[in-house]
Every structure is written in structure tokens, then in C-alpha cells.
Design a protein around this nucleic acid. Structure first.
Lengths: 202, 202
DNA sequence: CCTACCGATCGGTAGG
DNA sequence: CCTACCGATCGGTAGG
């Protein structure tokens, strides 16, 4: 029926699948992301979906990769031009709040990393490993930025970057919960207040 | 085959189902908790399981209730005899750490409330409502205890109990992630350090 | 509490 | 990229 597509068209189809996959998984989780649901949403056959990935696990890994690219683009890249250290960290933290508040088109069910973290934290397998790896990656970035801030003298020399990064992550987990579960409009400002305290006297 | 059981026996069977359900759901989530899996684990038929609840949704609600009872028993009750206010709050916070660290028999996949919160935060329905209600309940308890601490003069009079409770919840979300996803042995002490700072100068 | 069943959906494959 | 399948499992029901 449908003629064989060019490589460029196939790539574009793959992108559409992954984009839709991120949206579904942010609501239903990476296990709740089913090939049949994707096929229905995109007007394709299940075999057409699966042809691009081979297995569901590979589809899940591709979906995680795309979520990672979105996070990089929305949270870290807009801050890239800021002065390294505290100014850049502050810009990242503010973009992170905006991301959790407004990125509803890409992640209608909230940050996919948070969802995937809890979903796979008690399992084994390649998806779990990828989730843990990505969380470590973003954590290391935060720690690196905090170290720069200490070196620059923007934070007290006694500051423990790992400790501050740990507390920062907690604030964003709380923010994701406040937005998704409680639809609490005060949560972004609560997060800013906590950030100010944390980064002023770390 | 099996003779009709007495009401007491039926109640005991129901307890066994719910207990096992909590363990499964803490790993697989409340949607991943299937009637077939429960039946296999307990050596029963699916109809035997379902007879106690009628629908999967009712089973999920019963499982949440049991998890709530466990949390009350392990985190709040041991602190009940402490002086209301900061001393009791401190005892709760320490028991909460122990709970996330060691309650592996009851919750092999970590705190069921955290799992369920993320799993249902983008959905509708009665299970989601129950999850939100329970989170609000525990949050209110924290706020109440913080208010007592302010009244007693154990925390500065300018303290915002809602703000501190928000940050406390974030710390425990971070702790659950650190234990479950990273198996980080430093996380309990990181949590204690953050707590000390938070409750010393709130 | 059981056996025996239902339609729907799951991930995945064969073949084109 | 499709149609047409596969065996397994899902929640749930009938009847005892």
C-alpha cells in the first residue's frame, strides 16, 4: 500500500514517534507507553512503529534520550551564555522552574525523568540503568556549577557542592509533585524562596 | 473444593492479600499490581482475590489504606510520646529516615506513597484522589507540628510552617530517590544535615 | 473460595 | 510501511 519511504522520511517518522512517545510516557510512564497506543495516536500500524526500534525496550530508551535532549534545550542551553558559577546556576534554576510549570505540550504529565525515576527505581534492566545514568549526569552538572560558584567566591568556601545539589534536587522533586498532584500555584515561589536561602548561605 | 471459610478466616485472607499487594505495588506501582500476580504469589485463584474487592480499583484503594496505616505506625506513632512541637517533629523526621532506609520487607520498592504520587499525578479517578488526599493529610500533620514548634518558641516567630513543610517533603523525596535509584549510603546523613539547617533557622 | 470462561490488549513475528 | 497473525496476560463474570 504505502510506498517505500526515503531515508529522510523514515527519520522524520521516527522523530514523530519519539515525540509522541515522550508525551504519552510523561502521563502513563515508560511501561504504560504501549505500541498499540502509539499506533492509534499516529494513524500507523503496530508493526510500522516497531520497525523503527525492534523492541519496546529500545523504544523506551529512545524516548528517554529525547526527554534528555528536551531538558538540555529548555533548562541548560538558555543559561549557557551566563557567567559560569552562581549567575549561570541561578539562570538554570529559574529555567528549571519554568520548565516544570509550563512544558505541558512536551510533557503533559510532568517531567519524564521524575516519572521514570520512581517507576524504575526498584527494577533492573537497561531502562533503569539509563534513567540512573541521566540523573547522575544532571546531578554532576549541578555539582560542577556549584564548584565554580565556590571557586569564584560567590558561595562560602566551606560549601559542600554535593550537599547543595542533593537539596536542590529535592526542591525540584517537591515542585513537580506540587504542580502535578496539587496544582499548587504557590509552589514556584516557594521553590524560589528555598533556593534563595540555600544559595545565599550554603 | 475448599470449604466455606468463617468470617474471621475471610478477614485474615483479605489482610494477606492487601499485605502482599503493598509489597508488589511498591515495586510495580498500583497499576502494575495485577490480580493474576497476587493470585500466583498467594496460591489462590484470581476470582478468589477479586471476591474480596470486586474491582481492581477497590483493591488499589485498600492497598493505599494499608500503606497509610504502615506509615502512621512506623513514622508517627513511635514519636507520639515526645513533647509536642520541635522535639516530636524531630522524632518523626528521624523515624521517617529509618522508614525509607529499612522498611524493605513491607515496601521492597520504596515508599508506596511516593511511587503512587508520581504514577497517578497526571491521571483522574478515585485512586488519584485518594493519593492526593493522603499526601495532604501527612502534609497537614507536618504543618501542625511546625506551628506548635513556633508557638512553643522552638522556631523563630517569623517561620512559615507551610514553607518549611514544603521543603521537608522535598528532602524526603530526594532521600527516597537516593536510596532506591542510587543506593547512596550517604543520603540519610545528607538528609539530617539539611534538616538541622532547616529546623535551626527556619 | 474454586473452575471455566469472556473480550480486549499486550509485545512481537512472518511475509510482503 | 502494511495485513494478518501468534501466545500470553489483562480485568472481570457465571455458576457453583
Amino acid at each position: 500500500m504505502s510506498p517505500r519511504k526515503s531515508a529522510a522520511e523514515a527519520r522524520r517518522t521516527r522523530e514523530r514517534i519519539v515525540e509522541r512517545g515522550v508525551a504519552i510516557a510523561s502521563v502513563e510512564g515508560l511501561e504504560g507507553l504501549t505500541i498499540g497506543r502509539l499506533a492509534t495516536d499516529l494513524g500507523m500500524s503496530k508493526a510500522g512503529i516497531l520497525g523503527h526500534f525492534g523492541t519496546k525496550e529500545t523504544l523506551q530508551l529512545a524516548t528517554l534520550d529525547e526527554a534528555s535532549a528536551v531538558f538540555l534545550r529548555v533548562v541548560w542551553q538558555p543559561a549557557a551564555h551566563e557567567t559560569p558559577g552562581l549567575p549561570r546556576l541561578r539562570a538554570v534554576c529559574e529555567a528549571w522552574i519554568t520548565y516544570l510549570e509550563h512544558e505541558r505540550e512536551i510533557f503533559p504529565g510532568g517531567c519524564l525523568f521524575t516519572t521514570a525515576s520512581v517507576e524504575f527505581d526498584a527494577r533492573g534492566g537497561r531502562v533503569r540503568d539509563a534513567v540512573a545514568r541521566l540523573h547522575r549526569l544532571w546531578r554532576r552538572r549541578l555539582v560542577g556549577e556549584l564548584r565554580l560558584a565556590v571557586t569564584a567566591g560567590d558561595l562560602p568556601s566551606g560549601t559542600d557542592p554535593e550537599q547543595v545539589a542533593y537539596e536542590l534536587v529535592g526542591l525540584y522533586l517537591a515542585l513537580n509533585q506540587a504542580i502535578q498532584l496539587f496544582a499548587d500555584p504557590l509552589a514556584p515561589d516557594r521553590t524560589r524562596r528555598a533556593l534563595d536561602r540555600l544559595l545565599a548561605q550554603a
